[in-house]
Amino acid sequence: MNVIETCALGKRYRRNWALRDCSLTVPAGHVVALVGPNGAGKTTLLNLAAGLLRPTRGQVSVLGGERPGSAAARSRTGFVAQDAPLYGHLPAGDMLRVARNLNLTWDEDRAQARLAELAIPLDRKVRQLSGGQRAQLALTIALAKRPEVLILDEPLASLDPLARHDFMGSLMAAVAEDSLSVVFSSHVVSELERIADYLLVLNEGRLQLAGEVDALLDTHRILTGPGGEMALNLKQFAVVQVRQAGAQAQLLVRTSSAADPAPPGWLSSPASLEDLVLAYLRDPKASVLPGPEVTAAAGGEAVRA
């Protein structure tokens, strides 16, 4: 099952296309990081998947063909919007009760246990809670309806490092407990490897890269070698990025397999996820779009799962 599937999806706000011709499939059972700079269309894509927006072009479906916003999709999707909106004037306990009364399925015991564990005071107004507590409350509400997919829009953006760590810890615990799929957007590129096992890179409203993190890391190498003309003659690789440093060139290349040997005179080293994401983001026009083998590998995984 694909938790999100889009086909030539586009969304236009007045004259600007926030998302263009975006076709992707996100297989279930992953923690998916949706990465891109500000204004890349991450929020638009997630809001489309949550049923909060209507596509201008193309199609989007969630959870194996459900229309976003349909009754089935809404009750099976947990969504935490950007800045984790909650009713600030309500005490945390009443906020939880409001959410409970807006849902058919609700795991009250677990929600209460989670809030007790996090020591979130139920009688305190939501707006008086710390940013970290608010984010945890929003996550608790999203998890209490026992969703099959959890969509989080920039969950880490407003959190301090400690709260960020705690939040990701709770999220990972929930993932392990429920085997739910998670899609979260982030413009924080570091630490992604620790959290996500699937990566989507969105840039200027277009999908740039999609695939499992391991597969992406296996098929990207950093080659260091003589600069100048030589760098351009490496035809067996798809070159994502070239960096000239004096007489040396550093290339981020995409190979067809992990076993590709480095050409003579070149030193091959593994690329980190951060290197890889930054390389793609830095040059949206010249970058190499995900090759068919990456997509095929992802598809294969989905079938096996």
Binding site: A50, A71, L86, A99, N103, A138
Partner: peptide
């Protein structure tokens, strides 16, 4: 306040 994004993604229909 953006809370419509909370309310409209719960189980209840619009």
């Amino acid at each position: 306040l953006g809370t419509s994004r909370l309310a409209w993604t719960q189980g209840v229909g619009l």
